[in-house]
Nucleic acid binder design. Structure first.
Lengths: 256, 256
DNA sequence: GATACACCCTTACGCAGCGTCAATGTCAAT
DNA sequence: ATTGACATTGACGCTGCGTAAGGGTGTATC
């Protein structure tokens, strides 16, 4: 049985355009081309198309499908597992989004208008959610749920002025860190001031301060590439420098 | 407090390019532009950006967000509810996909290679799933779960040759239907032959034939635009013509 | 053999939401 | 005066096709 683009398309439930596109990108080539330029597909192509559509249905990208089907060396199971993880993340994210939408709808239906203050509350909530999403797992593993929840509670209780102050302090921190970094001495005055600023900044978010947790966080800045990237905006090696400064700072404070 | 693109970007966690893009499409304009052409954002813009990002996080399209924020007449709750439905569908779909991936992984890890026959089984299963997804609800409503399940069982039990025959019959059906349509007479010989072919085609998928169900299905071809579109490829009005032919056909058969 | 009609071809723009050069101008600090 | 970090506009690229535009083919019918 031989098929033209349309016939194969109808058979498999895809458009002729799709088949031409697959030809174009080399994913599915016709077995031959007729004298008048018509694409001709055979049974082998039908089979391959079925496989392509199977993976496409699983939201696998076309180039990935190409690799899966062409290269027998390619670890299909590993690829599928990775893909599965992506899908799960996406599904979970959708679940959270739906929850957020529900909250928003409930709010709006309750006739609650968004005053500036409330928008700010929402903003903070978003920040918390963001933090949870990005760092939640690591932080919760390191410090336990209780501390994180308390931190979130504290953030929610912050006034707009307090929040602005914390933000300002965070900005200054980066600035000072940059200057301290240039001195090159983590035990120097500027570096120790930076560490102190970091403690004060932290205190806006944590309910209880401890030198151990402080140092643990600074270490995380070094270990986690996202934190590292953020702090390294103050200069190359800033995250490591800050950790070293905090280490000295916490040791000194421990002497009292 | 005034912000440049980068500062605002860092504050909100988006790139400078994103802000320029939002300016370009008119979603978020800077409060003013400096003499040297720099975009300058103020507090109001920060707030608006927060709202934009809130909706963006919910996977709302940027133009939709624009409407939500600018037009107070716009029914935000209704829009959110519609959006929520979309998200739910997507989440459910992901759940199904994950299930399918799990099956595939299990198969592959079990060392089961995909012989032609097994691929064909998978193909059929996909067809069933497709059918379920597309028509499942209507069909199940009309005929009940039992019949649909039996139909699926029957399809699974079909040999590749049987399947090919059914496909061929389906192709011929369209062809004959097209020719019958040109005669214009649903009670004519060609039309009645078409109806009989349809019955035979159906018998590949249904465990038990009844004139009533046959006619019901033909009616569905008329009512459902997807079926209608499919059969109308045989010619304009083909779905209606087929139903009329089947009506006459089933009435005649009933006389025996 | 002309006509109609369904099908085929290539070429190319459009979509969403930016990422990513490229080429050039500006601001703050040294 | 010179860096280096930032700013600007402009333009192409990415995914996976949909949708014309403009023109050739294949087959059935008059």
């Amino acid at each position: 049985m031989e098929y033209t683009v349309m016939k194969l398309g109808r058979l498999a439930g895809v458009s002729a355009r799709t088949l031409r596109y697959y030809d174009e990108i080399g994913l599915l080539k016709p077995v031959r081309v007729s004298t008048s330029g018509y694409r001709v597909y055979g049974q082998a192509e039908v089979d391959r198309l079925q496989q392509i559509l199977f993976y496409r249905e699983l939201d696998v990208g076309l180039d990935e499908i190409g690799k899966l089907l062409s290269d027998p060396q390619y670890d299909a199971v590993e690829a599928l597992k990775a893909h599965r993880r992506k899908l799960c993340e996406n599904r979970d994210r959708l679940g959270r989004l739906i929850g957020n939408i529900d909250k928003t709808i409930a709010m709006k239906e309750g006739g609650i208008t968004m005053t500036d203050a409330e928008r700010f509350e929402g903003f903070k909530q978003n920040l918390i959610d963001e933090n949870e999403k990005q760092y939640g797992k690591e932080v919760r593993e390191k410090y336990g749920n209780e501390r994180v929840d308390k931190s979130n509670e504290k953030l929610k209780g912050m006034s707009e002025a307090q929040y602005a102050a914390a933000q300002q302090l965070g900005d200054d921190l980066i600035n000072t860190l940059g200057r301290a970094l240039k001195s090159g001495d983590p035990s120097g005055k500027l570096a120790q001031e930076t560490a102190d600023m970091h403690r004060r900044w932290l205190s806006y978010y944590w309910d209880a301060y401890s030198g151990e947790a402080h140092l643990g966080l600074a270490q995380m800045y070094v270990d986690d590439e996202r934190f590292r990237a953020y702090y390294n905006k103050a200069g190359s090696g800033a995250a490591v420098f800050l950790r070293d400064a905090v280490k000295i700072y916490t040791e000194k404070r421990g002497e009292y």
